[in-house]
């Protein structure tokens, strides 16, 4: 959704909050909101202004609704091959599955969160990792890089530009 859409949604939520608050207040016996409403519709000019604001809000909300319901125009994907027969692409989600399967081969990895990006040179993978404290960080990082690169290239046929390993945490519960 574009920034303007989010802004409209924000304003809409604020208006809804005010309306909801007014409804609750009226239900609790506080009549000021009703008095303001009476004032707002008391003269034809006020009614025209109120109606115009209402129409603008309806149009804006319909636009936001359409933006919200519209499916994304194609998921993020990496093109593997482009030939006469057609194009082969792999979604970023699929590359993450390949990475998660690959890291199971590395001992000592307790948790892993991959972030995959694309550059003209190939994929850039960032691995946020939690490991056992008794493991050597350089060793495990090297193993992770080798295994992930190998799997992405062999299974996915993808070109890997860079694999960054970030040890976020150590598994405190391990013995």
């Amino acid at each position: 959704m574009p920034v303007i859409g989010r802004l409209i949604l924000f304003v809409y939520n604020l208006i809804m909050l005010v309306i909801a608050g007014a409804v609750i207040a009226i239900s609790l016996g506080w009549n000021y909101p009703l008095a303001y409403l009476d004032l707002a519709v008391s003269t034809p000019e006020n009614r025209i202004i109120l109606g115009t604001v209402g129409i603008i809000l309806v149009v804006l909300i319909l636009v936001v609704l359409v933006w919200g319901l519209k499916a994304p125009v194609g998921t993020d994907a990496v093109i593997v091959d482009k030939g006469l027969a057609g194009e082969v692409s792999i979604s970023i989600a699929a590359t993450k599955v390949i990475i998660m399967k690959a890291v199971k081969q590395v001992e000592g990895v307790k948790d892993l969160r991959p972030i995959v990006g694309q550059t003209p040179a190939g994929l850039v993978v960032k691995l946020h990792t939690m490991i056992n404290p008794e493991q050597s960080v350089p060793e495990i990082a090297q193993s992770l890089q080798a295994v992930v690169k190998d799997n992405l290239e062999k299974v996915g046929g993808l070109q890997v530009a860079e694999i960054k390993v970030l040890i976020d945490d150590f598994n405190a519960g391990s013995k």
Binding site: T75, A77, V80, L84, A85, G86, E87, V88, S89, I90, S91, A93, A94, V97, I98, K101, V155
Partner: peptide, 10 residues
């Protein structure tokens, strides 16, 4: 053309 989009791995 047959364009193949791999959306996931299972």
């Amino acid at each position: 053309a047959v364009n193949v989009h791999v959306v996931s791995v299972m």
